[in-house]
């Protein structure tokens, strides 16, 4: 079957899919048609700990998921980390050039080989305001991922991730807050996220330290979070502030 035809059929079916099981079957069929052994459609969270409803569909060996959760790799897996730096799909062979690999990362790759997972290709999925995620495709142990499957994997990954978002109603995890934040609250969150203390933020904004503390407290109440780090994360996830505003060093 020509590759675009596989993708087209998948688009139609994925759009109509109403459950995770159905999507799992569709991905399985599609991979089989292309000679791909494994797929993994996931949000990058720690499934052993994080309670949020998130996407995780894969046909990796059982031993792999167990080992993966045991080692709490949901957020730190090297493939997931690399995908946060990528705008489109990348072969796993490119990962050493994308992120600094730690000894723990090398053991992840070694463990993958042991359980029978070969070479792969990962499509990142970044939807602003949601968990980052990705859709990976992998061959059996010792097999190279064919280059001519990169582009179709790219499309399948993108469509699959979007279908999974729809099915799991991922947008409803963080419902919009009832009362929007004030301009001053946002200013305080921005400077706090940039690493300024309350006193420094007050000096920059020309208000007292006590006022800064009050603004941040009210902001935390509106988001229903309990500390500064959570507040920053929610503000970034909700698009109230952006990474581009943080002025991080290049």
């Amino acid at each position: 079957m020509p590759k675009l035809a596989v993708a087209d059929a998948f688009v139609d079916n994925a759009r109509a899919a109403s459950s995770e099981d159905e999507l799992f079957e569709l991905l399985s069929e599609c991979c089989k048609a292309m000679g791909i052994r494994y797929f993994a459609l996931v949000h990058h969270i720690d499934f052993g700990v994080d309670a949020a409803p998130a996407i995780r569909l894969h046909n990796y060996p059982k031993a792999w998921q167990h080992w993966f959760d045991e080692n709490r790799l949901g957020r730190s897996d090297p493939v997931h980390r690399a995908s946060q730096l990528a705008n489109y799909g990348f072969p796993w062979s490119a990962i050493p050039g994308m992120i600094t690999l730690t000894p723990a990362d090398l053991s992840v790759f070694a463990q993958a080989r042991i359980v029978g997972i070969g070479d792969g290709y990962t499509v990142p999925a970044h939807v602003p305001g949601e968990f980052t995620g990705s859709c990976s495709f992998a061959m059996g142990a010792g097999e190279a991922f064919p280059r001519d499957l990169h582009s179709v994997a790219q499309i399948l990954g993108g469509i699959a991730f979007d279908a999974a978002r729809r099915i799991t109603r991922i947008r409803e995890i963080w419902p919009p807050i009832e009362r929007p934040l004030t301009v001053r609250q946002r200013d305080c969150i921005l400077w706090s996220t940039r690493g300024k203390t309350d006193w420094e933020t007050g000096t920059i904004l020309g208000i007292s330290m006590g006022t800064v503390i009050q603004h941040l407290k009210h902001a935390r109440e509106r988001y229903d979070v309990h500390n500064k780090a959570e507040l920053s994360v929610r503000a970034l996830q909700g698009g109230l502030i952006a990474f581009s505003e943080l002025g991080l060093r290049r």
Binding site: G89, A125, H126, Q154, F161, D162
Partner: peptide, 9 residues
Amino acid sequence: MGWFQQILS
């Protein structure tokens, strides 16, 4: 492609 993913969503 990054934009394509957003357009899909």
